[in-house]
Design a protein around this nucleic acid. Structure first.
Lengths: 144, 144
DNA sequence: TTCGTTTTCTTGACTGGTTCAAGAAAACCC
DNA sequence: GGGTTTTCTTGAACCAGTCAAGAAAACGAA
């Protein structure tokens, strides 16, 4: 079975604290949430948690690989617990809604640059930009 | 021959002004520059230009397709005049240096999402993250 | 050319997501 | 349980980029 948040934190060498458990648990059920949404969700579980604590948790977990952070240009960052398979993302230009897309070319890592220009590449990020169905509807009614 | 900035602006229906010409000319010789660098470069040509004017030019030209804007997470946006072929980019995590990479899978558009989840996709963005040669060297001397 | 309209430029204030800083509180290890 | 280390709270700060109002230019027709 998949390890729970408690084990994940321990294995990553991070202390086990209420805010961390709450963030990981909440995010598992709400992928692609923003820091703001996470804060709200976690407050619903724990009562009071500072904004800073949420950012610290998100950063610590992103750094250690427990969370993946997606930062679509022009939108606040989003976080997800699905890690380890390099899947990609669909992002709505208008509302920022983000959805998973499985890798187009089989297994990870699905892309290699044709010429790395002296760079040591460690990640290939693929973002598909467009409009989600909701925003397409509302755009007809009320053009941007 | 490739059209000059003057023609490009005209064809795009944009007025021809000194700041616009200067931005396009300067960017043609300095791809992947930040707004800040563009401002400096343009001031070298024209003397005084407001920051706002530069942003306006960059935005107007991006909107009309004369410029392409790349917004790597955690770094200021970069602009380039190479447009129309969907090439990709290498980005240095440390210094933000950005380089072109030709499309890995032949001609544009080289990528389609496997499942669009109701989105209407208009662009596939590919970013290769890593460390440029300079930053690799300096990282050994002075680890982050 | 000149006028009137429309767009763009200048100046200066402001925003929003995120980070920094100091100290208080909690988790870990023996 | 005590000491150390890490994390949390509070509140200020950051920065790329945007908004707003008015002055100044570019265009198009006469």
């Amino acid at each position: 079975m998949t390890p729970g948040p408690r084990e994940l934190l321990k294995d990553a060498g991070l202390r086990i604290t209420a805010p961390r458990l709450a963030v990981l648990e909440w995010l598992a059920g709400h992928p692609h949430a923003t820091a703001d949404q996470v804060t709200e969700g976690v407050r619903g579980k724990l009562g009071t948690v500072s904004t800073q604590a949420v950012y610290d948790v998100l950063n610590a977990c992103s750094r250690t690989g427990l969370l993946r952070r997606i930062e679509p240009a022009g939108h606040p960052a989003r976080y997800e617990t699905r890690i380890g398979d390099n899947h990609h993302h669909l992002v709505c230009r208008r509302c920022g809604r983000t959805e998973d897309v499985d890798c187009v070319h089989g297994a990870a890592p699905c892309l290699e640059p044709s010429d790395a220009a002296g760079f040591v590449v460690d990640e290939a990020e693929v973002l598909f930009w467009g409009l989600c169905s909701d925003c397409r509807t509302s755009e007809k009614e009320q053009p941007a």
